[in-house]
Amino acid sequence: MTGENSVDVTAPTPFGARLHRSVQENGRILAGIDPHASLLEAWGLPDTPAGLAEFSRVALDAVAGQVAAIKPQSAFFERHGSAGVAVLEGLLAAARERGVLTILDVKRGDIGSTMGAYAQAHLLPGAPLEADAITVSPYLGTGSLDPAVQLALEHGKGLFVLALTSNPDGPQVQHALSAPDTPVALEIARHAERIGAGDPGEWGSVGLVVGATVGDAYRRLGLDRAAPSVPLLAPGFGAQGAGPAEMSEVFGENAGHVLISLSRGILSQGPDPERLSHIVGQLRDEYSARP
């Protein structure tokens, strides 16, 4: 109902739907913008906030319109203190102005009001460090994510929950049983599907982080069946060894939900923006299976 004193409130488009549309239009590459000191040196830039700013500007210019989203790693900006965080703030704002989705890799995980404050820092519209989605850690219990889940779904934002990481020690926790016959990673996948499922035919807004180098664990532990609608943020491609073959070998029938996270595989081709743009186009074609 509308009236003279009514307010027309339009619900935001869910993040999962926006991400799915971006993949359909721009391919499935996620461009990591990670200003390692070695990359800055290779680009002929100083390891300073000014160097970070130039690095971020060139990288965004090169990938805009060719990738599903950018994925800045917050730590490489935070190491420069407030000046580095200001560069990250500028990068997120510039991407938003250009209509480029942002997934901020911060891996936040805490409880209660602290988790709520992390969520407000990154998921609240108008926040200085606002992103379209963030990575989060569920290893204080899946319920610890509730403040971030509530804020994300309210404002059309998204979360990517760590489930099966590619580091060698990950299975100590992720493959362990949280209940009889229920690996921790499987419980996390079920939770992501339950809280973030989208409309029929759409992706959910709460995805999983699953490394492309985890072998058969994603399917063997049952995550594919437990969470069929979630997007899958998959590090491990390129410099870490995984390639197009791992799309089906690791993710099976859910390969169409995989987001190919690449950082060094793109950024090592800089600083020439035309070269960067060219390599992104090549990689997009290489991983061209449609969702």
Rank of each mutant, 00 (worst) to 15 (best):
residue 19 L to S: 02
residue 129 L to M: 11
residue 290 R to C: 11
residue 255 A to L: 04
residue 160 F to N: 06
residue 157 K to Q: 01
residue 7 V to L: 15
residue 105 D to Y: 03
residue 49 P to C: 09
residue 263 S to H: 06
residue 65 G to I: 00
residue 7 V to A: 12
residue 247 M to P: 06
residue 136 V to F: 00
residue 261 S to D: 13
residue 81 G to S: 03
residue 226 A to P: 03
residue 136 V to H: 03
residue 274 E to G: 10
residue 153 L to A: 06
residue 251 F to Y: 06
residue 284 R to E: 06
residue 285 D to P: 13
residue 31 A to C: 01
residue 154 E to S: 10
residue 37 A to E: 09
residue 144 S to N: 09
residue 180 P to T: 15
residue 141 G to H: 03
residue 198 G to D: 07
residue 95 A to S: 09
residue 241 G to H: 02
residue 124 L to S: 13
residue 5 N to G: 15
residue 91 L to I: 01
residue 145 L to F: 04
residue 50 A to F: 15
residue 248 S to M: 09
residue 90 G to N: 14
residue 45 L to Q: 03
residue 30 L to F: 01
residue 186 L to N: 10
residue 142 T to R: 15
residue 230 V to A: 13
residue 157 K to R: 06
residue 186 L to D: 05
residue 85 V to E: 12
residue 61 D to A: 05
residue 1 M to H: 13
residue 51 G to I: 12
residue 120 Q to F: 15
residue 248 S to Y: 06
residue 4 E to M: 07
residue 29 I to F: 07
residue 209 V to H: 07
residue 135 T to V: 10
residue 194 R to P: 07
residue 12 P to D: 00
residue 95 A to P: 00
residue 280 V to W: 08
residue 209 V to G: 00
residue 63 V to Q: 00
residue 162 L to K: 12
residue 102 T to C: 11
residue 262 L to T: 13
residue 3 G to C: 02
residue 91 L to G: 04
residue 90 G to S: 04
residue 140 L to W: 10
residue 154 E to F: 09
residue 258 V to I: 04
residue 85 V to L: 10
residue 52 L to A: 03
residue 195 I to F: 14
residue 143 G to W: 12
residue 33 I to H: 05
residue 194 R to C: 14
residue 24 Q to D: 14
residue 37 A to L: 02
residue 49 P to V: 01
